[in-house]
Computed example of a mutant assay.
Amino acid sequence: MTLEIITADALTPARHGFFTRRGGASSGVFSGLNCGAGSSDQSDMVAINRARVADAMNVAHDHLVSVHQFHSTDVVTLTEPPSEKPRADAMVTATPGLALSVLSADCQPVLFHDPKAGIVGAAHAGWRGALDGILEATIKAMEGLGANRENINAAIGPCISQSAYEVGPDFLDEFLADDHDNARFFANGAGDRMQFDLPAFGLHRLRRAGVGHAEWTRHCTYTDADRFFSYRRSVHAKEADYGRLIAAISL
């Protein structure tokens, strides 16, 4: 099966893609294109999957770069492939031939491009990172390379949608403590539960930061098991582990 790659017109002409799980070498709960080296999948299968992504991005296999994600607001600026995987949740570069990649399985993969300055970025933005400011930090790092935020286009890839994202009152309280207007990203659920709109919150933060354009591909990871891995779906199914989707961008 060939790879399935979701793209966003706003990110052209940068080579980019939000890769689905289709076209990979992994099996079992990881069936498809699992690119998560931190999963319990066979390491050689993950390596094959990542090599397929690098080929699709038209970069050398060691130029498909990743970070050790931990829901932070840390961003690294790269000019060459790092010798060790940095601890961060976003990367930016102005170097052609480097494909910046992030992994996700319900969190937001966000790709950035300033076509005028020739700068790209990639961020992993779960609720924690988005609330703490990982998207704004990525934009600031791009500006450090010479980007203008008014020229930056950003696209949020497949992530969990509001109908599938049930949260409790403590979760809501964190967002209201940050800004009471964040209440608009929550809908009433069953009992004391709420439904959180993660991509709408991500778009809000991007637009408030002043990017030229921001969009969501409108794909839900939880509800489309044939195309996407989902952490929350794996928990509900009582599976031992889950695959990780990859998103990448390069000049």
Rank of each mutant, 00 (worst) to 15 (best):
A190D: 15
T223E: 15
R232W: 09
G189T: 06
F175S: 07
H61I: 11
H16W: 07
T79A: 11
K116L: 11
N148V: 14
Y242I: 10
F19K: 01
G36H: 03
V75N: 05
Y165F: 15
R207C: 12
R128N: 11
T95D: 03
Y222M: 08
T77I: 13
H113S: 06
T93P: 03
R233A: 11
V46I: 14
L206F: 06
G210K: 09
A187V: 10
A247D: 00
R208C: 12
Q162A: 14
H213K: 14
A155W: 09
V65N: 09
A117E: 05
T12Y: 09
S163Y: 08
N34W: 00
C220D: 15
F19H: 02
A177K: 15
D226Y: 05
A94M: 08
A248S: 09
G212E: 08
G126F: 02
R15I: 15
A137F: 10
Q69C: 11
M57T: 04
I119L: 05
S72Q: 06
S250D: 08
A125S: 14
T138C: 14
N151P: 04
R149N: 06
H219P: 00
G146L: 06
R208Y: 07
D132V: 11
D192V: 05
R218T: 06
H204F: 15
F229R: 04
R184H: 12
H113F: 05
R15C: 12
N151L: 12
E136P: 01
R22V: 11
I5D: 05
G202F: 01
N49M: 03
R244Y: 10
V53Q: 02
D170R: 13
N153M: 13
G118P: 06
G36P: 06
D44F: 10
G36N: 05
L64Q: 09
L145T: 12
V110Y: 08
P169M: 00
R15G: 12
S104F: 03
S40E: 08
H71C: 13
N151Y: 10
G243Y: 00
M1C: 07
H113L: 03
F186K: 03
A214L: 02
L98W: 00
A214R: 02
V92Q: 04
H236G: 01
I134V: 15
G118V: 04
L145F: 09
N188E: 13
